[in-house]
Nucleic acid binder design. Sequence first.
DNA 1: GATAAAAAAGGGGTATACTGATCGATAATA
DNA 2: TATTATCGATCAGTATACCCCTTTTTTATC
Lengths: 194, 194
Amino acid sequence: MAKTDRVEPSRRDAGEEQGSLRQLMEELPLWKRPGYLIRRVHQLHYALFFEEVGESDITPVQYGLMTILSTNPDIDQIAIATKLGIDRTNVADVLRRLERAGLVERRQSEVDRRAKLVRLTQAGREMLSRHYPDMTRAQARLLACLDAKQRDAFLDALVTIIEANNQFGRSSLTNEAGGTETKISKGRKKRSTE
Amino acid sequence: MAKTDRVEPSRRDAGEEQGSLRQLMEELPLWKRPGYLIRRVHQLHYALFFEEVGESDITPVQYGLMTILSTNPDIDQIAIATKLGIDRTNVADVLRRLERAGLVERRQSEVDRRAKLVRLTQAGREMLSRHYPDMTRAQARLLACLDAKQRDAFLDALVTIIEANNQFGRSSLTNEAGGTETKISKGRKKRSTE
DNA sequence: GATAAAAAAGGGGTATACTGATCGATAATA
DNA sequence: TATTATCGATCAGTATACCCCTTTTTTATC
């Protein structure tokens, strides 16, 4: 980690005033915080994905969304959000870009004129197939440093965490299974528009 | 096609046209893709962080940046980017918000007039201390579903992955250790501005 | 059938994150 | 010294991701 980057190495004694905070940090530095580590790994996956799939201008989220469409044609945007685990407004953004690229098409549902049903175009299906090996390679490279047992345990832990916490956030899966009203955005505090 | 919109779970047989793609997806569906799972966990951590620390309008990245400042006062922005593992342009964005909130202050370095040295204000230090328990609680809650052994293995795997892949992305740590010229944004493909 | 509740989509706003490019200051070299 | 290369910061642009709020349509209730 190399404590002394470019900044003067000896410059650390300026933190006198911090006092107890300093030792607080030593108890639980960044590299012990799961949230920090997960953010880093998340970014690494993005970088690997772009390196493997990059020239197609497709992002991991877009690929994931199209994966869902491939097995769920004519789905509406909220159902996509639920399955993908992202916010519904974000789904609309992603779909707009995919539609602009000609990879999906949206049309009004005749049954429910509020809903817009989405499906892959032929180009979308081809894109998905063509880059499937690339996507898989990106996934594999990310975990290449772990042996099979570690890898399984790691994926297991991720799934466990998601299932144990999926009541949080707008993108939870709760609104299809449990019909209680205390589900969406209940625990979120507002960000105070400032 | 277009029968049921809203898409019931049992509605999977509509994917006739996809053919081989469909079975491709069954081999490696979303829930087997580490990148997808990590994104979900990343978002869950954000949600938990906001639930615990939320009323302060502080984000995980901002808290992490201030944590670094607490042990590295008078650091420049590129050094922050290296330590935090984010892009340097993003550091500038985050700092701008923190400065606006009065939590950090920037001043020109006298030694190197290109550099702007950053440090916490008193308000920043207080904020960091005050919400330390909240932040810790958010971290703990995320992994509360794992037992101690799983937790250690999980954190271990995260660190392993980061260290094994840290040559990717603008936010890598490589440019301090290895002095070769092939380091930054070498493997990235451009996104083709469309 | 009229009214109220809920659902789907969209608009507006903000934060994170990265790319490419530029620009001023410093360092290294001719 | 003058030129060149590099470094730190910043700007413009884009994508992801979330919030709140509104509009339109549907469904449920009276």
